[in-house]
């Protein structure tokens, strides 16, 4: 058990990311330098003020974008600008393919791997059931609500049996009640698959409720100013919100983030003004 806890699923070493200058804009130093170790099987959340480089962190850790400096590792192997097998990503925007049915959306990745049809059907049916989409297998995403579409995207990721799941504010566009329910679903998924999960969110309560550890990021360029260990049990769910300790963690997160958020607002207002002045 202790061995399991300390085994490293993914690691960032001295990572920075700088977006090169575009016409009329200075280069943007979005991230780092920062280090991060994700333990195998843990639920790790990242919170931070808007524009602090949370999504950039996910890009680097998944292999979607290379770091400018430093190195990113997945299961001990360095990432080189491709997303390796074993990593699944769920985005904030609706990434379901509108021209495919729910079933075909979920089957997309398996078919690319050349898996035979019977096995695809078995695995897709399982993922669709798991995400509560059974009644909608032949529907198109346009016929579903935003929350249901996000379930389709999660099912599409889940079906690939990833060992590391990265989620970039997946519930950002959903209403509060749906978010809470989706959070419970996510915990269930995490427990049953045993995967390592990194969730990026701007909702402190959400991070608090779901995570083993929470990384708090500074305003841009984003670095970790603290990592909070929650100490929740593995079979937690959204009823945890009534616990007194829950409020303490939320307060601690907010007290760290308040000044960073104000700094970030200042940065953004300054940039808007500079753009408008051009």
């Amino acid at each position: 058990m202790t061995d399991d806890k300390t085994a490293v699923a993914a690691e960032l070493v001295g990572v920075t990311r700088v977006y090169p200058a575009r016409a009329g804009h200075a280069p943007v130093h979005a991230l780092g330098p920062l280090d991060l170790k994700l333990h195998r099987g843990e639920f790790f959340s990242v919170v931070g003020p808007s524009g602090c480089g949370k999504s950039t962190l996910l890009d680097v850790l998944s292999g979607l974008a290379p770091p400018t400096e430093g190195k990113a590792f997945f299961e001990g192997r360095p990432l080189n600008d491709t997303v390796p097998d074993g990593i699944g990503v769920v985005f904030q925007e609706d990434a379901s393919f509108p021209w495919l049915t729910v079933f075909d959306n979920v089957a997309f990745g398996l078919r690319r791997k050349g898996m035979e049809a019977g096995e695809v059907r078995r695995r897709v049916d399982y993922a669709i059931n798991f995400m509560g989409l059974k009644a909608f297998a032949t529907a198109y995403p346009a016929q579903l609500s935003g929350g249901m579409r996000q379930r389709v995207c999660i099912a599409r990721t889940l079906v690939m049996e990833p060992r590391l799941i990265l989620l970039d504010e997946p519930f950002g566009a959903l209403d509060q009640q749906t978010r809470l329910l989706m959070g419970d679903e996510l915990l269930r998924l995490w427990r049953e698959t045993g995967a390592t999960v990194m969730l990026i969110t701007h909702a402190l309560d959400e991070a608090n409720l779901l995570s083993d550890r929470i990384g708090v990021m500074s305003a841009r360029p984003g670095i970790f100013i603290d990592v909070v260990e929650t100490g929740w049990s593995r079979d937690r769910d959204s009823t945890l919100a009534a616990d007194a300790r829950f409020g303490l963690v939320s307060n601690r997160l907010w007290s760290m983030l308040r000044s960073e958020s104000m700094r970030a607002m200042g940065q953004q207002t300054g940039e808007r003004a500079a753009e408008a002045a051009e």
């Binding site: 998944s62 979607l64 491709t82 997303v83 990593i87 699944g88 990503v89 985005f91 925007e93 609706d94 990434a95 393919f97 997309f108 990745g109 690319r112």
Partner: peptide
């Protein structure tokens, strides 16, 4: 986001 999804796959 669809192109990013393509890259993930």
């Amino acid at each position: 986001v669809l192109l990013r999804t393509a890259k993930v796959h």
